[in-house]
């Protein structure tokens, strides 16, 4: 693209120093123009409220009276709050339970669809769970997994197996929440992968096939490497989403039993709207933000290694 002639180059202000010239180059102006609408939306509905949340994190604000500045008090309290650390631990565990399985299953599903059946029907079917809201999904699974009234346990009983409490047991609740979310997001994630698979030229597979490569080998040599941009996207967004798990917990467990599912965003919500500690909730949000920034940078670095997407 550097070779592309720029017809407007002549109009570029000439007397500017080179560093500034870059700012006013035609391409830069175009770039800014292209992102302008999105940027306005970003500033109004993401950046400003984030800055506001950041400043609130240095105050004691119960939502009902004006905030009172307290400096770093919320952050100090947070370090000393065992519930906060426990919530972080639970969240981390949840992400570990959720992400690997969900990603692998989705990729498997996408490849199966790509290589076996390209039918719209199958694609429409696998996205069905995603059509239901998180809340409704949690409600369905309350029924399905109910220890006494649920199909799954009735079925286990028919097989002579012991009933499982799922949401009701502190040992199973978190994994159950993860399972429910894998169910809802598997098809959705598969569809993302599937869209990525479509951009891989068919000819590559045909050529490999003629060379006698197995499906397995083609997957590792062609599919996976060429799917990298989509994989980065899937992993980054699902890790961010997974760290913010909330709805399923709110409906199905309420953070229980005995704090087994008190994930960080649930604890933030509790503090903000039940304990009326918005300042504290904002401080925790900032810590979560930092953790996610680190994770995201790591992921992007990892996946970009030796091969820049931005070339």
């Amino acid at each position: 693209m550097e070779q592309a002639p720029e017809p407007g180059a002549i109009q570029r202000p000439r007397r500017l120093p080179p560093a500034l010239r870059q700012f006013f180059s035609r391409e830069a102006m175009t770039g800014w123009l292209f992102i302008l609408p999105a940027f306005i939306g970003f500033v109004l509905f993401y950046l400003l409220p984030s800055i506001r949340a950041f400043s609130i994190s240095f105050t004691d604000w119960n939502l009902l009276r004006p905030p009172r500045p307290v400096g770093l008090e919320n952050y100090q309290a947070l370090v000393a709050d065992p519930n906060f650390w426990h919530a972080l631990k639970v969240t981390g565990l949840y992400v570990l339970l959720n992400i690997p399985l969900q990603t692998v299953l989705a990729l498997l599903l996408a490849v199966l669809m790509d290589r076996l059946v390209r039918s719209i029907f199958v694609r429409a079917v696998i996205i069905l769970p995603y059509l239901l809201s998180n809340v409704v999904v949690a409600m369905i699974f309350l029924w399905l997994l109910h220890p006494i009234l649920g199909y799954i346990n009735v079925f286990l009983g028919l097989l002579g197996l012991e009933r499982q409490p799922f949401f009701g047991s502190p040992d199973q609740a978190l994994a159950t929440v993860a399972g429910v979310n894998i169910w809802r997001h598997m098809g959705f994630t598969a569809l993302l992968f599937y869209a990525g698979l479509q951009s891989i030229p068919r000819s590559l597979y045909e050529a490999a096939s003629i060379d006698g490569a197995s499906e397995w080998r083609m997957f590792w040599r062609i599919t996976l490497p060429l799917l990298r941009p989509v994989t980065v996207f899937v992993l980054v967004t699902s890790v961010i989403g997974s760290f913010q798990i909330f709805d399923t917990v709110a409906v199905a467990t309420g953070g229980g039993p005995t704090y087994a599912t008190r994930v960080i965003v649930w604890y933030i919500y509790e503090n903000a709207f039940q304990f009326f500690k918005m300042g504290y909730a904002s401080a925790m949000s900032m810590v979560l933000f930092l953790i996610l920034v680190v994770f995201t940078l790591l992921q992007m670095r990892l996946f970009r290694a030796g091969h820049s997407d931005l070339a």
Binding site: L142, W143, H146, P147, I148, L149, R163, P165, F166, F167, G168, S169, V251, A252, T253, G254, P257
Partner: peptide
């Protein structure tokens, strides 16, 4: 009595009206 693990958020009302 029903173990607390088996009540879940579906609630005791659900169990009672189911006749169990």
């Amino acid at each position: 009595a029903v173990p607390v693990t088996d009540v879940t958020r579906l609630g005791s009302e659900a169990l009672f009206t189911s006749g169990k």
